[in-house]
Simulated scan of single mutants.
Amino acid sequence: MPSIFSRIVAGEIPAHKIAETDDYLAFLDVMPTTTGHTLVIPKKEVDYIFDLDDDLYTGLMAFAKKVALAIEKAILCKRIGVAVVGLEVPHAHVHLIPLNSMADMNFHNKLKPSQEELAETAARIRQYL
């Protein structure tokens, strides 16, 4: 059964997309720890990030860097935190989280933005790509 991220890639589930290439997709987390919290994935479904082949892995990180630089321009923050946890969805992904303090990396504190707020945030980030 395809992961929720594969279903997003296939267009079966809507997402607030930030950036997309043939191989990668970045979209807003719908339950973010901070405004602008973005997930970056390879479109190819691989469960564990370190099971990605070297080219896909390095491409994912290069793509994530471009997205992170856009987030940093769009969202007031001290820097962009990067996390790879990989337990919640069986599809390799990178969290890009705007940080003003270490508390912003707490995955137990989730915001609940409206769809309109998510759309506005996505549009703000996309203008810097």
Results as ranks from 00 to 15, higher is better:
His37Asn: 11
Leu76Trp: 06
Tyr48Lys: 15
Met102Ala: 15
Asp54Phe: 09
Thr38Trp: 00
Ile71Pro: 00
Leu69Glu: 15
Ile80Met: 04
Val89Gln: 03
Leu28Thr: 03
Val84Arg: 00
Ile49Val: 15
Pro42Asn: 09
Val89Tyr: 00
Val9Gly: 01
Phe27Asn: 02
Glu20Met: 10
Arg7Gln: 15
Leu99Ile: 11
Leu25Arg: 06
Glu117Val: 03
Thr38Leu: 04
Leu99Ala: 07
Ser6Asp: 03
Val30Glu: 08
Pro113Tyr: 09
Asp104Ile: 10
Thr35Glu: 11
Ala68Asn: 07
Thr35Met: 13
Leu87Thr: 12
Asp29Tyr: 01
Phe63Val: 08
Val30Asn: 09
Lys110Trp: 00
Asp54Met: 10
Lys73Glu: 14
Ser3Trp: 05
Ala68Lys: 06
Lys43His: 05
Ala74Cys: 10
Met61Pro: 00
Ser114Gly: 12
Ile41Ala: 10
Ile49Lys: 08
Pro42Arg: 05
Leu96Asp: 01
Thr34Asp: 02
Tyr24Leu: 08
Asp47Ser: 15
Val82Trp: 12
Leu52Tyr: 02
Ala92Thr: 05
Ala19Asn: 09
Glu20Trp: 08
Pro90Asn: 13
Ala70Asn: 07
Ala68Met: 10
Val85Ile: 15
Ser6Trp: 05
Leu52Glu: 05
Ile18Ser: 02
Glu45Ser: 10
Ile4Tyr: 04
Leu111Ala: 10
Lys65Asp: 06
Phe107Ala: 13
Thr58Met: 09
Ala103His: 12
Ala70Gln: 08
Leu129Trp: 02
Leu87Met: 14
Leu56Tyr: 00
Ile80Ala: 04
Lys65Pro: 00
Asp22Val: 09
Glu72Asn: 13
Lys78Arg: 15
Leu87Asp: 11
Leu25Gly: 03
Glu88Cys: 03
Ala123Asp: 11
Lys73Gly: 12
Lys112Pro: 02
Asp53Trp: 07
Leu28Phe: 04
Ala123His: 07
Pro90Val: 09
Met102Gly: 13
Gly86Ser: 08
Arg7Phe: 01
Phe107Asp: 03
Ala26Ile: 00
Ser101Thr: 15
Ser3Asn: 13
Lys110Val: 04
Thr21Ser: 15
Phe27Ser: 01
Leu25Asp: 04
Leu39Phe: 09
Asp29Cys: 04
Gly81Tyr: 06
Thr121Leu: 07
Ile75Asn: 06
His93Ile: 04
Ala92Asp: 02
Asp53Asn: 14
His37Ile: 08
Gly59Tyr: 00
Arg124Cys: 07
His16Lys: 05
Ala15Glu: 04
Asn109Thr: 14
Leu96Trp: 02
